[in-house]
Design a protein around this nucleic acid. Structure first.
Lengths: 148, 148
DNA sequence: ACTAATTGGGACTGTATAGGTACTATTTAG
DNA sequence: CTAAATAGTACCTATACAGTCCCAATTAGT
């Protein structure tokens, strides 16, 4: 894998939508309609994002959700870890008997380096970036489109 | 998640072990013993790595596996994609009805940028690096250890 | 005060996939 | 000819992902 879960994908879509109108209050229903994602799922995600303090909520009639911070101040890494926990490639497996493997722990230390590189990559992109039609760093060569 | 699967973790351990003695031929049994991972699982991984042409095999008595290339020439990205397919964070979800979402595709294009950053990070580390006790870039602050 | 709208927080379920197992065929050294 | 090892395939199982449902708490409007 090393692929991000569908829920996380949706969550970034949600956050990106909110980032386009930072002051506005969106209800779960509005967001579900806007994104074409089933309402219960949207509601679930919003709850998680709220608990991670990336959103603030207003209850009652006319209530809804808003970004808790400026779009610039929220990174993709924040969203990812809100949905699927801390970003770490390896969860130092608690092998019964400890790290019996010869130099395995050294190897794992190296994993952490990689892990950190990935985290840095995710932290480098903010919601403000995502809200733009395209990132300024994108060369706009047809990199995503692959002929079949 | 964004965490690597256990199998991939094992695979890198295997490859790292082989990278320490590039000329030597290891049987699946030897590797399983050395790493403390169940034999059938090791065998399965070795087959996948063989098909990805990262290993060469010798059949029959006294046979086993060896690296197909120099440790320097094999990256962690190679190992990861051999086990879990191409490294891509989002698999442009084929939503029924296409990308109905307003500017979703723009958002996904941005995902590809991130995806690429991650891939680059993985490609930057070779088996030779992993075989070292520690990467030269590791600050060796106690970064992984978290008090509970 | 009452009603409708909306968030808050669980519990519950089906399904996909990761992880592991088993069996058989093929190859080769001695 | 036998033993040791890889090669390939098919299968099982537990976990967790993705999605759904329900009910309590809160608030605006009438």
């Amino acid at each position: 894998m090393l692929r991000i879960s569908k829920l996380t994908d949706y969550a970034t879509l949600l956050m990106t939508r909110l980032a386009r109108e930072p002051g506005r209050c969106f209800s779960a229903t509005q967001l579900a309609d806007a994104l074409g994602v089933p309402l219960p799922t949207v509601a679930k995600l919003l709850k998680r994002l709220l608990q991670a303090e990336l959103l603030v909520s207003v209850r009652g009639t006319g209530g809804g959700y808003m970004l808790a911070h400026a779009p610039r101040a929220i990174s993709v890494a924040d969203v990812v870890s809100a949905i699927e926990g801390p970003v770490a490639l390896t969860e130092c497996v608690h092998v019964p008997g400890g790290c019996v493997l010869e130099a395995a722990c050294a190897t794992r230390a190296n994993w952490h380096v990689i892990s950190r590189a990935v985290r840095t990559a995710l932290e480098g992109v903010s919601l403000a970036d995502m809200a733009l039609p395209r990132l300024r760093t994108v060369p706009l060569q047809r990199m995503a489109v692959k002929e079949k």
